[in-house]
Simulated scan of single mutants.
Amino acid sequence: MTQLAPGDAAATRKDDVVVLVVPADGSYLAVLRTATAGLAARLQFTLDEIEDLRIAVDEACAMLLAVAPTGADLTCEFEVTPEALAINVTAPVKDSAALPGGQSFSWQVLTALAGTVSTETTDEQATIRLVKNRTNPT
């Protein structure tokens, strides 16, 4: 991430943000799961919480892969704060495809594993946001 000059009015950068862009192909999801685990460990999540987040990221990616066109990229943005790990997974959508609804099994899995889950869909792309709060922030 580019660091701006301290006096720059536009210097409203986020402190700890990691952005990974991988091909929208299931064979690259291990990279995102590994990054998730590493960042969650940095926040001292428990082993169970880390595994839950890995599974949640995998599920979010699977949902997006189902609506992404061939040859697209999957973007995963991790925002690390002292209180939480927020993960935005984004992919372009083909033919105005829709993500599964809030009552779907996939959605229930995400909510159970990640804590707070939300989506944003436009005609061009879909984003799934996962936010896992730390149980004991320091």
Rank of each mutant, 00 (worst) to 15 (best):
M1C: 04
T2N: 04
Q3A: 09
D8I: 03
A11M: 00
T12F: 07
R13W: 02
K14T: 12
V21I: 07
P23R: 09
D25H: 05
L29V: 09
L29F: 04
A30Y: 08
A30K: 13
V31S: 11
T34G: 09
T36M: 07
A37M: 11
L43T: 09
Q44F: 09
T46H: 11
L47M: 11
E49M: 05
I50E: 07
E51L: 13
E51M: 11
E51I: 10
L53H: 06
I55T: 14
A60I: 08
A60Y: 05
C61V: 06
A62D: 15
L64E: 04
L65C: 04
A72W: 05
A72D: 01
C76F: 04
E77W: 01
E79G: 07
T81H: 06
A84K: 05
A84L: 10
L85I: 15
T90M: 01
T90Y: 06
K94G: 09
D95Y: 03
P100L: 12
G101A: 14
G102W: 08
F105H: 14
F105P: 00
F105S: 14
W107V: 01
W107L: 00
Q108F: 10
T111L: 12
A112P: 00
L113H: 06
G115A: 05
T116M: 08
E120W: 08
Q125H: 06
Q125P: 00
T135F: 08
N136T: 15
N136H: 14
N136P: 00
P137C: 13
T138K: 15
